[in-house]
Design a protein around this nucleic acid. Structure first.
Lengths: 122, 122
DNA sequence: TCGATGGTTCGGGTACAATCGAACTAGTCT
DNA sequence: AGACTAGTTCGATTGTACCCGAACCATCGA
């Protein structure tokens, strides 16, 4: 059985729906779920991104040579943001991503420490 | 294309291979990888198991009413053990599962604290 | 207004994970 | 030996995640 319900929205005609591309959802602090955070951090690429953010405060998608396709990287950043791990500040064309360090520390004390330790081969 | 290589081992003839069922692999402490630990903890059922283990020191698979099938539960315990989160002690027929608290604390300080906090709806 | 830049979204392929029932195994008890 | 218990393993199905290229969009500079 093939799902057919996802075809609804075709984007080729710009004005017929006004759901903007720039929503950038992120959960409120009390809504951050530990299992989601762990899920976001269970991917080696994303864990690497977060470890970078522990040292750099802010990065953009373009600051990466690591990953392959742009869309893949965008997907990882979205996953981190929607899990509540990062937040994104839009400035002109660039998206600056930072760790929600205080929020995470308030909600899950010890997590930041866990991430900081042990440099490992992922 | 359908994979055909997995058909090799049929178990209906007991003595033709002696790979025992009782291996119960778990990684040595320095081999525990953070991304694997996070992966194991990203499932709500397994996170719940681990939270239980923070209070109970040891449990058996039978101590659960939560999950559905026995095989599913067994799978979750295997995942936790192979990620390095738990260890299993066999005593007669029962398997006693416990948190590798010291190992985790040594390798990833703060992780246990993270798990201890915040009772949440998973 | 046109093109470049820095991303997001879509659609699809492929790989992995969760779940289950059925079959099996290994100990224990009678 | 036979039945019971506690769990593992197998095989299949279903669902989800990762990854990519193509299309799209919004902003900026010329």
């Amino acid at each position: 059985m093939i799902a057919t319900f996802a075809v609804r929205r075709r984007k080729l005609f710009p004005a017929d729906e006004n759901l903007p591309m720039k929503i950038l959802y992120q959960p409120r602090t009390p809504d951050i779920l530990l299992s989601n955070v762990f899920g976001a951090l269970s991917d080696p690429t994303r864990l690497h991104i977060v470890r970078l953010l522990l040292r750099t405060t802010e990065i953009t998608c373009g600051d990466f040579e690591i990953a392959g396709a742009k869309s893949t990287l965008s997907h990882h950043f979205k996953t981190l943001r929607e899990a509540g791990v990062t937040s994104t500040r839009v400035e002109g064309v660039q998206h600056f991503v930072s760790l929600r360090r205080d929020d995470l520390d308030a909600r899950f004390p010890g997590l930041i420490a866990t991430l900081t330790c042990a440099e490992e081969p992922f």
